[in-house]
Design a protein around this nucleic acid. Structure first.
Lengths: 202, 202
DNA sequence: GAGAGAATAGAACGATCGTGCTTTTTTGTC
DNA sequence: GACAAAAAAGCACGATCGTTCTATTCTCTC
């Protein structure tokens, strides 16, 4: 894939844009700044997208692809049930810890940035976050159906709590630069899952 | 207090600045935009601060004062121990839910914005977040010392988990506009505290 | 209520923003 | 290797940015 020069350049631009967006913000990231970071001219870069908003949308989509590859896809290969719930959360923490994006989780950054900025960019970010949450919720539901997790609690609330630990690890590390939070978040997630586990039928 | 005209104007500017910063961001909030929102001239407003950075620092301090008044001070009047831990968390969720700032928690917004933007503004934000976390941690410690909470767990980790629920409620509401998260966060916090409670000595 | 000083407004600056237009360079196909 | 098409660069635009300087208006004190 990425056969033509244009496609390769576009891909490289979006890699840089997504990385810089987590450090400097997606909105304040100027065309000139991005051109400098990629070694291109302003107008040469601009021609790939036609407007700043299109660039932003493409950047959001590109970041979503990266997260799918780094978090969702690996967890999908774990067996349904508790194992997959754990894999999703662990992968999410990993993705923060490995600094796939230098400024932490792309959607944590940008969702705060666009919370009160209506428009297609915000819509795209919300949609991605929504699908992440519902995927996690669905995994919890499957674990309940498999008889591994207590079915009396709402899967939505369990997903909320597990996600909260992973998101907080990301936020705390970015602010305090203390790597302990990753293991603390993993432990919190593990213990929360264990507290919901149903005694195995032998 | 606020005896002189200048002090009153400055206070009003900072109220508006803190509110707008949670919606539009602290960095992209321009002097002209803030002047328009307060009905002043650019230069008239600017003269109160001398530089944009000073305005930003004053805005952060002002927001901190508001949070102390809205969250910390009320919780301080709760008795030491579990009651105060609960009061702190409940107040924090409340402060998000009541939309003391229209864009949600001021420090949640700005910490993401300044995570990778070194300088005095970032330092001030980090300091405020750090003191919030250590205040919560200290409250947990007191509850352990009073024999109300299991002393075997690190107060730091308990504070991390409780804060995670409150912060996530804020983030989810701002993104999804679903008011259920506030009660879900309160329930998660309550149940986590209960799970750590030590059987009372009669 | 007059007069000093604080508070606010007006106008202008150089820099940077997103974007359009034109030209040059590069790429991929016969 | 020529040639059409694609990609990149150069340049200029109007708007907005933070900031400065000067002029005007308002506030508070005696």
């Amino acid at each position: 894939m990425l056969r033509t020069k244009g496609e390769r350049t576009r891909h490289a631009i979006l890699d840089t844009a997504a990385a810089l967006a987590t450090q400097e913000g997606l909105e304040p990231l100027s065309i000139a700044r991005l051109a400098e970071a990629t070694g291109m001219s302003k107008s040469g870069l601009f021609a790939h997208f036609g407007s700043k908003e299109e660039l932003q949308l493409a950047t959001v989509d590109h970041a979503a692809d990266i997260i799918v590859a780094e978090v969702i896809a690996p967890a999908r290969s774990a067996p349904r049930g508790v194992a997959r719930v754990w894999a999703l959360c662990d992968r999410m923490v990993d993705y923060s810890e490995r600094q796939v994006f230098p400024g932490g989780c792309f959607f944590a950054c940008t969702s705060f940035e666009y919370n009160n900025r209506p428009g297609p960019v915000r819509d795209r970010i919300e949609e991605m976050m929504r699908s992440w949450m519902s995927y996690l919720e669905h995994a919890v539901e499957q674990a309940q159906e498999a008889g591994e997790l207590d079915p009396r609690l709402e899967p939505r609330e369990i997903a909320f709590q597990l996600d909260a630990f992973a998101q907080s690890a990301n936020a705390h590390f970015q602010l305090f630069r203390d790597e302990r939070v990753f293991e603390e978040a993993r432990r919190a997630i593990r213990e929360r899952i264990e507290s919901l586990r149903v005694a195995r039928a032998a």
